[in-house]
Amino acid sequence: MSFSLARQPLRAAAPRLLQRSAVASSSRVRHFALPSTSPPTSPRPRMSAPNISPPSPLAPAAASAPLELPGAPTPLPSAPAESGYSASALPPTSDPLFSAFVNHLMRDGKKAQARAHVLGMLSHMAQWLHSDPLVALRSAVATAAPLTRMQTSKQAGKSVPVPLALHERQSRRRAIVAIIEASKKRADRFLDARLAREVCAVLEGNSSVLQKKEEAHKVATLNRSNAAVRV
């Protein structure tokens, strides 16, 4: 009896619950069925692959451009090389002939003074010869360089002069010393001018250095029979 009475309120409320669920479901359907406000988009056209033919194996490869990295320093343009020789562009002090001339001219350890005299000599030669003075100095030293020297040897109680050959460094030293000694007899006031005039005289062939060289060669030729004597 009590069970039947308890089910009556549920049966009475069932139509109302079903009506509420139907309204909710219909509103939910209407919410999702609203059309979108964005315009319809056209379908994306399909891209066809480009027709690229493979390179011929006999065709030369194209030169690729150099890769430029961000932040890399830009190379500076190289300065054009000076044509000829000028007094403001003196030769480097690392040249062996220049260093040898400075060392033979140096007195009392004053190397800076000797270097200044040699640079002044090259400046005078550049003005007078209108060419590279270092090349002219090499030619003058090679012209004045002797090839032999004499040495005395005792054989059977007598002195025998024996001619000996000189190597390149010994020959260059004798030529430089001879030019420096011959320049002391000139009347110019400054040492660099005297040295320049002596070098030019050697190039012209009227220097006393060449006469001494010829005399030394004559003595060596006269005593060439003693070349086999052991010194």
Rank of each mutant, 00 (worst) to 15 (best):
R11G: 02
P133L: 02
A140W: 00
N51A: 02
Q113F: 09
A114F: 11
A187G: 00
S86I: 06
T41D: 05
A187H: 06
T152E: 05
L69E: 08
V118C: 05
I176N: 01
A116N: 11
L195D: 01
H104M: 04
E214Q: 07
A193S: 05
A72Y: 12
P60S: 09
V219R: 04
M121F: 12
H167T: 12
M150G: 04
E168F: 14
E68R: 09
S42N: 09
S48W: 13
A22Y: 13
G157H: 12
A89R: 15
V141I: 15
L67Y: 12
R194E: 08
Q211S: 03
A33C: 11
P66F: 08
S4Y: 14
E168D: 11
S42F: 14
G71K: 00
P39M: 09
R173S: 10
L105C: 00
L76I: 05
S25Q: 15
P54A: 15
S25Y: 13
L105I: 01
K213S: 01
P70E: 01
A196H: 03
P163C: 05
S171W: 00
V162T: 11
S78I: 13
N206K: 10
T93G: 08
L210E: 02
H217N: 02
R16T: 01
P75D: 00
A12S: 12
M150S: 07
H130A: 09
L166I: 02
A62T: 14
R138M: 01
S42A: 11
L76D: 02
A59W: 12
L203W: 00
S38Q: 12
S38W: 13
S64A: 08
P35L: 12
A178N: 01
A156I: 10
S207K: 06
R138E: 03
P161E: 02
S88R: 15
A22M: 12
